[in-house]
Each structure stands twice: as C-alpha cells, then as structure tokens.
Design a protein around this nucleic acid. Structure first.
Lengths: 179, 179
DNA sequence: TATTGTTATACTCTATAACTATA
DNA sequence: TATAGTTATAGAGTATAACAATA
C-alpha cells in the first residue's frame, strides 16, 4: 500500500498510550476514542453539515421551508423562467424528486409552472406574488441562521470555508470526476 | 431587520447587472445564478459532503462498506466492549437505527454482541477476527479516498478544514446548542 | 422511575427504471 | 433517437413512540 494509515491518524486526540486490543470491559469507561475517524474530513463535514441543516430547519420552521425548498425558491426567484431540468442541473436535485417538491410548492401557492413558449415539453418556473413574499421572509430568517454560523465558526473561518468549498466545486465541475 | 441580506450575498459570482425580476423567457439562456445561495455555508457544505460521501462509497464498494458502517467498525475496533448506546452517543446514530445496522454486520460475521458482565440490559460490542481483517482493508481504501481529498482540496486546505470543523464540534458540545 | 435494546411508523433524500409527449 | 416531465420503487438516513427486561 502506498498510502499509510498513519498519514491520516489523529493528531490532536489520539491517545499516546496503546489501548489493549482485546476486549477489556473496563475500556468503555475511558473517554471513547474515535480512532482514525479523527483523520477523515468526510466524518467532520458530515457531522457539521447535519448540525447546520438542523439549525437552518429550526430557524425556518415558522414558515415551513426546508433547505432544499429554500434553494429551489432562491434559484427560481433569481432566474424566472427556468425549466425543471435546469433547476435539477444547477442544484443537483433529481428531476424525479423535483416533481413532488414543485407539486407541493404549487399547492401552497408559492410557485407556478407556466407553459414554455419555446419547448412544449417543459415548464417555465415562476414565483407567485406570494412566493416572492415568502422568499423574502425566508432570506431574512436564513440570514439569522448564517449569522449564527459566523458566530460559531468565527467570521473569518466561515468565509474561508465558503471559498474553499466553492473552489472545490469549481474544480469538480472542470474535472467531471463524478456526478 | 438587524441582519441584512446583503451581508450574505455573493461576492464572486453575483452578476453586476440587475436581471429583470419579471419572467423573461430568455433569462434562462444566461448562465444560471444561484443568488444568495452563494453566501450560504450550508449550501456548499452540503454539496461538498455529498460528493465526498459518494467518493467514499465508490472507493469502499469492493468490500461493501458504507460510511456509517465504517464509522461503527472503527469505533468498536478502537474501543472493544462499548454498548450500543455508547456508539449511538459517540457517533450521533439513533439507537433504533444501530440495531438494524448491527444485525447486518453480525450476519456478515463482522461484529459480535456479547453479554455485558456489568449490565444485563446491554451488549458488549466486539469485532470478530474477520471484522478486524475487513476493517484493516477498509482503512486502506479509506486512506486512498482521503488522499484524493487532499489532492482536490489541497493538503493544507484539507487539514485546515478538519481543524476548523473539529473545533466547531467541540464548541457545540460545550454549548449544548443542539443535539 | 430511568435506561437498554428493540420494533414499528413516517418522512426526507438518493438512485433507478420506465412511460408519455414532445423534440 | 433523445429529452422533459412524470410515476413508481427501493434503500439510506432521520425522528418518534412504545414496549419488555433490567437498573
């Protein structure tokens, strides 16, 4: 193997004393060791992302808008007339899933599927007046959520992570590595 | 409102020309605008995390181990004798979900639920010989995955993100803000 | 009374396949 | 033939509630 485990083992929290590998029941008393997870970016990204989404959901609960719904409303608001396939491409949401989601947003009177005048297969998506009003509220609440993140991460860290992740995304799009 | 939207609006990709707010069908030709999503850390974290997990799943596919299973095997391997509740607490996996997961790992001969000698309600979790062997392979593959991340993010960025996210987690644990 | 493992239910999200109407 | 929207299905993950055995 060319890449050794050590390379990714924990630096900060790995115990310096070797723990007996065989089951000693007392071992469970010690502060639990996450082992090599401490070296996996994906592990920390996942836990943090879950927390961030929970905070977002909690913050937008008064208007009953979830993260995926928010992202769709924002993109339609910024680009009226897009098709469902367009949204799907931009946000990486499955076309099949978008259908149900727009069904619900339509039923709530937030979005409209107008006939496209260029392709009779596709819909031109728009926000209703009410949809625009709700999106405005959503953005205000989302900004509160974002302010909380800035507080928790530190404003500089938050900004830097956004930049690193955006750059990552750009690199992926260029390389077509996956998806 | 004390927190304005502008604070979180895009810097890098926001169009400097104002786009007509009313639906003009031609608008969909322009490169689509993600609007305020460009200012949301959660949006980028989500997209990146999904990609990272997909890469992890692809990389560990030969041994049919998914991220959550990997994390459980790692923690049991590092702390033999833990109970299911312990694992649940450490990894933030619902106790109910762990049951099914361990059922499957048990059936595959990777883990064992031995009776605890201290509490007859709980199980002492262990890896079988085969489980230890598979975990070793899993760690090798996971290290390959991690090397790919280092390449894509840049080694320094990867390390920095791990540290920022770990610090974030620590702050949460201290504050008990959620979860 | 509270906790451990368990079963059950429901909902979100991801991943497919297949159908229809258009292109 | 390929694409847009749709329907359907299956699985992972999350969130609950409730129950039996045990603490």
């Amino acid at each position: 193997m060319s890449v050794s485990d050590r390379k990714f083992s924990a630096k900060a929290s790995a115990p310096s004393t070797v723990r007996p590998r065989l089951a000693s029941p007392k071992a469970r008393d010690a502060r639990p060791d996450r082992g090599v997870l401490n070296g996996h970016l994906g592990y920390f990204m996942r836990r943090a992302q879950v927390w961030v989404f929970q905070d977002f959901i909690r913050t937008l609960a008064p208007i009953d808008i979830r993260p995926a719904q928010y992202s769709v409303l924002v993109v339609i608001g910024a680009n009226p007339g897009l098709s469902q396939s367009d949204i799907s491409d931009i946000l990486g949401i499955e076309r099949a899933r978008l259908v149900r989601m727009l069904d619900r947003l339509d039923r709530r009177g937030l979005t409209l599927r107008l006939p496209s005048d260029r392709d009779r297969r596709s819909h031109a998506l728009h926000l209703t007046r009410e949809g625009q009003k709700l999106l405005k509220q959503a953005k205000m609440l989302a900004a509160q959520h974002e302010a909380r993140l800035a507080e928790l991460f530190g404003p500089a860290n938050r900004q830097m992570m956004i930049e690193v992740l955006r750059e990552f995304e750009t690199r992926l799009a260029a390389g077509q590595s996956s998806r």
